[in-house]
Amino acid sequence: MQVHSFLHSDTETYTHVLADIQQNVCAVIDPVLDFDAKSGRTGTTGIDEVIDFVQSQDWQLVYIIETHAHADHLSGAIHLKETLGGQLVMGRYITDVQKIFKQIYNLDTRFRTDASQFDILTDAGDTLALGDITITAMHVPGHTPADMAYVATDDEKTVVFVGDTIFAPDVGTARCDFPGGDAKTLYQSIKKLLALADDTVMYLCHDYPSKGRRHCPTTTVAAQKQNNIHVKDGINEAEFVQMRERRDATLAMPRLIIPSVQVNIDAGHLPEPETNGTRYLKVPINVFGQ
């Protein structure tokens, strides 16, 4: 098993490539599409770096895995799939998120809320075979209802791709104030992750390093239990919920939440062009934030 991580610097998002190098197969977790909010322009510079790497290794892309419908970047899954193939994987509870945001964006009847935009839907305990690597889905709601972590195991080691559920120890944990989020549920989900073996490497979806520390894509279960500022050993559920809810009340909305969620609940597809050939995103007024 090999994992290679690519930092998308504009959104501080990590895209990971998980590979069985003996069988020349791989999966890409949480790909990012460049998006400039000021101009409304998309780009593929970031995801093309991942594509070039996979092609240079002569690996077959089997899965494109989204840990959840991200609110801070647009998914690069469609460009990745059109270029390299692969099946698009999402947790089955994305249907809950689709129904919530279909109402918020007032999407018309063409928008499907049955998750049929995705190729594979996973539930807790479902497995995917990637060569000799077994990828097991772990349902970790709280940030959103649909969040999934993915535990990858082979004969040598176990790693876990945690999405937005938990961050580096000095950063803490995901916010829970988006529609469908819940701090108590997040605490219970994190406890599932921290029940993995102490030496399990956690691959993070984001890193927002404190001053003086460089971005890093990984941590360990042991490091989280010892040092995570929000959920280290000794912090109980009530303390966590109180902290999380107070903190969330002070946070601004993510810079790209309005375009990101709109695109990502549709598996990364941009809206269909209108009669003039231009695609448009909707902006709900006075809905998000305070």
Results as ranks from 00 to 15, higher is better:
1 M>I: 09
2 Q>F: 11
3 V>R: 01
5 S>P: 02
6 F>S: 03
16 H>S: 14
18 L>K: 01
18 L>H: 06
22 Q>D: 15
22 Q>K: 11
24 N>F: 03
24 N>L: 06
29 I>M: 08
31 P>A: 07
31 P>M: 07
33 L>A: 02
35 F>V: 10
41 R>T: 14
41 R>H: 09
45 T>D: 15
52 D>S: 11
55 Q>F: 05
66 E>C: 10
67 T>Y: 03
68 H>L: 13
69 A>F: 03
71 A>H: 08
71 A>T: 14
71 A>V: 13
75 S>M: 03
80 L>D: 08
82 E>Q: 15
84 L>I: 07
84 L>D: 03
84 L>M: 06
85 G>M: 14
85 G>Y: 13
86 G>I: 12
88 L>H: 15
88 L>N: 07
90 M>S: 00
94 I>Y: 04
94 I>C: 02
94 I>V: 14
96 D>S: 04
98 Q>H: 04
102 K>G: 10
102 K>W: 08
115 A>Q: 03
118 F>K: 06
119 D>M: 05
121 L>A: 03
122 T>S: 10
123 D>G: 15
125 G>C: 06
129 A>L: 15
130 L>W: 11
131 G>T: 13
132 D>S: 15
136 T>F: 04
136 T>Y: 04
141 P>Y: 05
141 P>G: 04
144 T>V: 09
150 Y>P: 08
154 D>M: 08
154 D>K: 03
155 D>Y: 02
155 D>H: 12
156 E>H: 13
159 V>P: 07
160 V>K: 00
161 F>H: 02
165 T>P: 01
165 T>N: 07
167 F>P: 03
167 F>W: 13
173 T>F: 06
175 R>L: 11
177 D>A: 07
181 G>S: 00
182 D>W: 02
183 A>S: 14
186 L>W: 04
187 Y>F: 15
187 Y>E: 07
193 L>E: 12
195 A>D: 11
195 A>N: 10
196 L>Y: 04
197 A>T: 13
199 D>G: 04
201 V>W: 00
201 V>N: 00
201 V>Y: 07
202 M>L: 15
205 C>K: 10
206 H>V: 14
207 D>Y: 03
209 P>S: 01
210 S>P: 04
210 S>K: 13
211 K>N: 06
211 K>Q: 12
216 C>R: 11
217 P>M: 08
220 T>N: 03
220 T>V: 12
223 A>D: 15
228 N>P: 01
232 K>I: 10
239 E>N: 03
239 E>I: 06
241 V>M: 01
243 M>P: 00
246 R>N: 14
247 R>G: 04
248 D>F: 06
248 D>E: 05
252 A>M: 07
254 P>D: 09
255 R>V: 15
258 I>C: 00
262 Q>N: 11
263 V>N: 05
264 N>V: 14
265 I>E: 11
265 I>T: 12
270 L>A: 04
276 N>D: 15
280 Y>M: 12
281 L>E: 06
284 P>T: 11
285 I>R: 08
288 F>A: 11
289 G>S: 10
